[in-house]
């Protein structure tokens, strides 16, 4: 099995002597091959269907081959230097062509890598620019932060609060003015209207103004947000309540008719 046939047909450049020597060698080899072939055919084939047995056979064959490789002596292909030179030349040429293929393969690989490198470098450049931009932005923010001291922030907030307070006072004043002008106390109204005086007088003396009603409602909302309802008592003039409810300024309690709260405007 380990037979190695001497390589190919003799080249034309060989001298006649060398060529005949080579042919003799080939014939010797072929004779040996035939001898071995006959031996194999004559051998009784050991049929084994059993895979276990096949494995053992395989192991034995491998073992035998290993032993043969260990004992085999490296020997010259041929004694004639001319033949050796020719064989060597052929081997070299073969090797050369194989190496050339390897070279071209690596060149292609190199070009591909170079392309990849250029692409990566472009990406790197872009990434660098992004980094520069981001650093710039961060620096600007840092500078702004340094300029803003704690004191200035406090001052800022204080000014804002003051502004808000002034605005709120303004609103309250306007509200007061509007109420004073358009919804005066019931007593005043009744005193101007002589005809209704008697009926009015029958009403509760300590009625409070709309101003005060709103104040009570607002305070209730702010102080106890979980229970913003206010009980309606005698001091609330019913028309005012009616007006508040009708214009959606106040809402009645769903279960208790005598309770109202300020509409949630926020």
């Amino acid at each position: 099995m380990a037979e190695v046939k001497p390589g190919g047909q003799p080249a034309a450049e060989l001298s006649e002597a060398a060529q005949s020597e080579l042919l003799d060698l080939c014939e010797d080899q072929f004779a040996q091959l035939e001898k071995l072939q006959n031996e194999i055919i004559l051998c009784e084939p050991d049929l084994c269907e059993n895979p276990q047995e096949q494995s053992v056979n395989r192991l034995m064959a491998t073992d035998a081959e290993l032993k043969q490789w260990l004992t085999v002596e490296p020997k010259l292909l041929a004694a004639n230097s001319e033949v050796l030179l020719q064989a060597g030349k052929e081997e070299m040429l073969k090797l050369c062509s194989e190496l050339e293929m390897v070279l071209s393969c690596y060149e292609a690989k190199r070009d591909k890598l170079r392309e990849t490198k250029e692409l990566e470098q472009k990406w790197l450049e872009e990434k660098k620019q992004v980094l520069i931009a981001a650093t710039d932005h961060a620096e600007r923010l840092q500078m702004e932060k340094e300029k803003l001291s704690e004191h200035s922030v406090l001052q800022d907030t204080k000014a804002k609060i003051r502004k808000m307070k002034v605005y709120q006072e303004n609103l309250m004043e306007s509200l007061g003015d509007v109420l004073e002008k358009h919804v005066p106390l019931p007593q005043n109204e009744s005193s101007t209207n002589r005809k209704k005086k008697n009926i009015e007088l029958g009403l509760n003396e300590d009625l409070i103004s709309l101003n005060e009603i709103l104040e009570v409602l607002m305070n209730k909302v702010l102080n106890t947000p979980h229970d913003p309802y206010v009980m309606i008592d005698d001091t609330f003039w019913p028309p005012y309540i009616e007006m508040l409810l009708r214009y959606g300024i106040a809402v009645r309690h769903q279960e208790n008719n005598f309770k109202i709260r300020l509409e949630t405007f926020f």
């Binding site: 099995m1 380990a2 037979e3 190695v4 046939k5 395989r58 064959a61 491998t62 081959e65």
Partner: peptide, 13 residues
């Protein structure tokens, strides 16, 4: 058997 120093059994292992 065309590759010197290699056999089918050796390769298949």
């Amino acid at each position: 058997g065309l590759v010197p120093m290699a056999t089918a059994l050796y390769l298949s292992n």
